[in-house]
């Protein structure tokens, strides 16, 4: 505890004048766009990133802002701009291209919404969107997000600990794992209608119960202070910052507590490439690419912004004890 206190003061504070607000970002983008259009009116519309991609979510949320110091909830690394978070996504239900979710996720209905909680709990039931947004104390968490594809972002999420949700439904002594499921509504999710996709929808993810109850494990309902854009997993998604991004399942409709380890989508598809644990680990490469470093986005032509990947994505102090005695090269 004493150690933590000292840490709290060792992190330099950023002057509020140094932080760029979202509106300033958007204005800057408008300016850049206007400049681009003036320079080349004919090809101005030929951009990979459409107007839709720039929408960054909806309603403002009521939350406690992140402050430096407490157990990995904050980082002073430069946050990835909201437009980039909203335009560069993996959400295969809308297509496998990075821009597809931003283009097509608006087709998904996110209100009304509910999460069904079942399995090894004393009080199974449903949580409706209103209960999710207003039934928990929302707080901001500034986390690093490391994708298994070797790119990363820094994201200011808004949400509440998953533990708070699970406790409400009172897990029984038998509960050892938590299984999550994404919405599967094919008429609103064009990626799931692809005949050549080899994912067995709905998308499924899972955590061990102690991982799920860890204070870093967040149920997120917003980013940059506003409700999530659909393409980022609206209205509610999981964020597990020390694991590869695919563990942080989006647009959750079901949570089930189980006795046995649930089958998860990527592990089922390619068990050699994606493990159940999927802890960020620079020492264990993906069979098809290295995990030793990552491109921190935004990356540019002349500055790819390649940085070294850290064990547990830099959250080792908080989570390493969960895996004591485990061979992480085997349980990847």
């Amino acid at each position: 505890m004493g150690l933590n206190m000292r840490k709290r003061f060792s992190i330099p504070r950023i002057a509020s004048s140094e932080i760029t607000s979202e509106s300033a970002y958007l204005k800057r983008r408008d300016f850049i766009r206007a400049a681009g259009l003036a320079a080349a009116p004919v090809v101005g519309g030929l951009s990979l990133h459409s107007e839709a991609a720039k929408s960054t979510g909806g309603a403002a949320l009521d939350y406690v802002a992140a402050t430096p110091g407490v157990g990995g909830f904050y980082t002073d690394e430069k946050a990835t701009p909201p437009g980039d978070i909203a335009s560069y996504c993996n959400f295969y239900e809308f297509g496998t291209g990075k821009g597809d979710p931003a283009h097509y996720a608006h087709e998904m209905t996110v209100d009304p919404w509910s999460i069904e909680i079942s399995g090894a709990v004393h009080k199974p039931g449903k949580l409706h969107l209103e209960d999710i947004i207003s039934g928990f104390d929302l707080e901001e968490r500034i986390y690093r997000l490391r994708c298994v594809e070797a790119w990363s972002m820094v994201v200011p999420w808004v949400g509440f600990p998953l533990a708070a949700l699970l406790q409400r439904f009172e897990p029984t002594g038998k509960a050892r794992y938590v299984e999550f499921q994404t919405l599967h509504r094919s008429d609103e999710m064009r990626g799931t209608r692809s005949y050549t996709s080899i994912i067995d929808w709905p998308y499924r993810e899972g955590l061990r119960l102690d991982e799920a109850m860890h204070p870093l494990t967040l149920m997120s309902v917003g980013v940059y202070g506003k409700t999530l854009p659909n393409q980022n997993g609206a209205p509610v998604r999981l964020v597990v910052p020390w694991k590869y991004g695919f563990k942080s399942i989006k647009s959750i409709v079901a949570i089930r507590l189980t006795e046995t380890r649930p089958a998860t989508s990527w592990e089922t598809l390619a068990p050699r490439e994606y493990g159940f644990y999927a802890n960020v680990n620079p020492q264990v490469d993906h069979p098809r690419w290295s995990q030793k470093s990552e491109r921190r986005l935004p990356s540019t032509l002349f500055n790819p912004n390649r940085i070294a990947t850290r064990m547990f994505n830099g959250y080792g102090e908080q989570v390493a004890h969960l895996y004591q005695g485990m061979d992480l090269a085997k349980s990847y």
């Binding site: 080349a40 990979l48 990835t80 335009s87 986005l297 935004p298 990356s299 032509l301």
Partner: peptide, 19 residues
């Protein structure tokens, strides 16, 4: 040419490597 133009106008997004 399209790549060069997009790269010059930041039209390749946050991860130009990918595109």
């Amino acid at each position: 040419a399209w790549l060069v133009y997009s790269a010059a106008t930041a039209g390749l997004g946050p991860d130009p490597a990918e595109s």
